[in-house]
C-alpha cells in the first residue's frame, strides 16, 4: 500500500515540478507549484512527518503561493516573455543541473538505511512543540524576529513612492 502511495505521489510531484519549470505562463507555473506542494505534503505524511505536512499545506500552499499569485496578478503578466533563447550560460546551466543530479545520487548511495523503530509520538505536534520550546527556543525566537523584519522589509521595499 505505502509503495503504491509513494510512487503515486512521487510521480505526481515530479510531473508538477516539471510543470513549474516548463510552463509558458507564470500562472501555470504557480499552479503547478501548488500541486507540487500538495504532493509533497502527502509524501511528508508517508514519512510520518504529520506536523510538517500540515504546515506545508498551510504555509506554503496556503500563504506563500497566495502571495505569489497576488504578485503575478499585480504585475499583470500574461504569456511568457518571448521565445526561449538558447544561450551558452543556459546550456551550461542545464549541464550543471544534470551533473548536480548525478552527484547527489552518487552521494546518496552509500547510506545504509537504518530503518529504525519510531516511537508513537514521532512527528506529532506535542513532540515537535516540546522540542521547539525547550532546546530550540533560540532559533525559534530568531526566526520570529526574522519574520518581523521580513514583514517590515517587504512593506518598505514594495511601497510605491508616494
Amino acid at each position: 500500500m505505502t509503495t503504491f502511495l509513494f510512487y503515486f505521489f512521487a510521480i505526481l510531484t515530479v510531473v508538477a515540478a516539471a510543470g513549474v519549470i516548463a510552463a509558458r505562463s507564470p500562472i501555470y507555473s504557480a499552479m503547478s507549484l501548488v500541486g507540487t506542494f500538495f504532493s509533497l505534503a502527502a509524501i511528508y505524511a508517508l514519512l510520518l512527518a504529520h506536523t510538517i505536512a500540515v504546515l506545508q499545506v498551510l504555509v506554503y500552499a496556503g500563504a506563500i503561493m497566495v502571495l505569489f499569485l497576488f504578485v503575478i496578478m499585480l504585475l499583470s503578466l500574461g504569456e511568457s516573455v518571448g521565445p526561449a533563447k538558447v544561450t551558452f550560460p543556459r546550456v551550461v546551466g542545464g549541464l550543471v543541473a544534470a551533473g548536480l543530479f548525478a552527484a547527489l545520487v552518487i552521494a546518496a548511495r552509500p547510506f545504509v538505511p537504518a530503518a529504525a523503530q519510531t516511537p508513537p509520538s514521532f512527528g506529532t505536534l506535542q513532540s515537535i512543540g516540546a522540542q521547539l520550546y525547550t532546546q530550540w527556543l533560540a532559533p525559534f525566537e530568531a526566526v520570529s524576529l526574522l519574520l518581523l523584519v521580513a514583514m517590515v522589509g517587504a512593506v518598505v521595499v514594495a511601497k510605491s513612492r508616494v
Binding site: 512521487a10 510531484t13 515530479v14 515540478a17 516539471a18 513549474v20 519549470i21 510552463a23 507564470p26 507555473s29 504557480a30 509524501i43 505569489f68 504578485v71 503575478i72 504585475l75 503578466l77 511568457s80 516573455v81 518571448g82 526561449a84 533563447k85 550560460p89 543556459r90 551550461v92 546551466g93 542545464g94 550543471v96 543541473a97 544534470a98 548536480l100 543530479f101 547527489l104 545520487v105 546518496a108 547510506f111
Partner: peptide, 23 residues
Amino acid sequence: LFLAALLFSLGVFGVLVRRNALV
C-alpha cells in the same frame, strides 16, 4: 533521497534557465 535529488536538480535547472524572475 532519489526523489529529493530529482526535485533539487529540477529546481536548479529552472533557476538557471528560466527568464521570468517569478518563475
